[in-house]
């Protein structure tokens, strides 16, 4: 029996290291990394078939972080999984670091599958990988994390159309539905609703979950794995989740805490 509380504790540790690394970096995006911490915990410590020591293992599942600005939560998850020593998290965004501001393949950080940071590419890359797996007759999967604001990019829907066309049952997309983007609420900046109907209309199966509830996320992945066509999980999250004073506040999309704030934020995470 899976002990959800162990994963909840892991998600707290990931949030704390996200805050520490961003404080150290002095710039970056806190909101999405905190909001996605539960999903990343489930992915790296439950869902993904991967081997930290063998990052080029041919039969691994692929995780594509299409929203490259959430790089900190990816880096922290990789470090906690054993891909590299957590000390390296302190180099985030610094000159010569393998932890670039947005993930970059050429710096050869183990566990990074692709460069990302320009929105609207990730789902297409995931489609290319999913088709390659079918050519190679392998049974692993591709997971792609999209932002909800990112769905405003037309190329995402080109990719969605092609995934359904090729009936890619080895592709799972996760939409980080936190309802905010840099300019404000997605409903005001450019409304993306009705999201469920959109994905259904493009030929996908749609699941919804509370993206900040470990048990609910696990439930969705368990269902998604059995689907016979591409499936999207619309994961309702809160930007900045874990730190009540910034939760849901779009102003924390591209902000980082100073030392004092970081201390306060970490206390808040420990005490919840």
């Amino acid at each position: 029996m899976l002990d959800v509380s162990i994963l909840e504790q892991k998600a707290k540790e990931i949030r704390i290291d996200v805050i520490k690394s961003l404080k150290e970096a002095g710039s970056g995006h806190l909101g999405a990394s905190l909001g996605l911490a539960d999903i990343f915990t489930v992915l790296y410590f439950y869902e993904l078939h991967h081997k930290a020591g063998v990052s080029d293992w041919h039969a691994r599942d692929r995780l594509i972080l299409s929203i490259g600005h959430a790089a900190p939560v990816l880096y922290v998850s990789l470090a906690h999984s054993g891909y590299f020593h957590p000390d390296e998290l302190k180099t985030l965004r610094k000159l010569g670091s393998r932890l670039q501001g947005h993930p970059a393949l050429c710096y050869k950080l183990p566990g990074v599958e692709t460069t990302s940071g320009s929105l609207g590419h990730g789902l297409s890359i995931a489609v290319g990988m999913a088709i390659s797996m079918i050519i190679d007759k392998t049974s692993h999967k591709v997971y792609c994390i999209l932002g909800d604001g990112e769905l405003q990019e037309g190329s995402v829907w080109e990719a969605a159309m092609s995934a359904a066309h090729y009936k890619l049952d080895n592709l799972v997309a996760i939409v980080d539905r936190n309802e905010v983007q840099i300019d404000g609420n997605t409903s005001e900046v450019m409304d993306i609703e009705n999201l469920e109907e959109k994905w259904l209309g493009f030929g996908w199966d749609v699941l919804e979950c509370n993206g900040n509830d470990i048990a609910d996320i696990i439930k969705s992945f368990n269902i998604a794995r059995e689907k016979t066509k591409p499936v999207v999980i619309i994961a309702h999250t809160k930007m900045g989740k874990g730190v009540p004073e910034i939760e849901g506040n779009y102003k924390w999309h591209g902000k980082v805490p100073n030392s004092k704030q970081a201390e306060k934020f970490i206390d808040a995470i420990i005490n919840t």
Binding site: I125, M129, S132, E158, A159, S162
Partner: peptide, 19 residues
């Protein structure tokens, strides 16, 4: 089909998978 942005990044995904 007529979707150059998708085709270019799909190709990248395939190339990342040794194609």
């Amino acid at each position: 089909g007529i979707a150059e942005q998708n085709i270019a990044a799909v190709a990248a995904g395939m190339a990342l998978s040794d194609k």
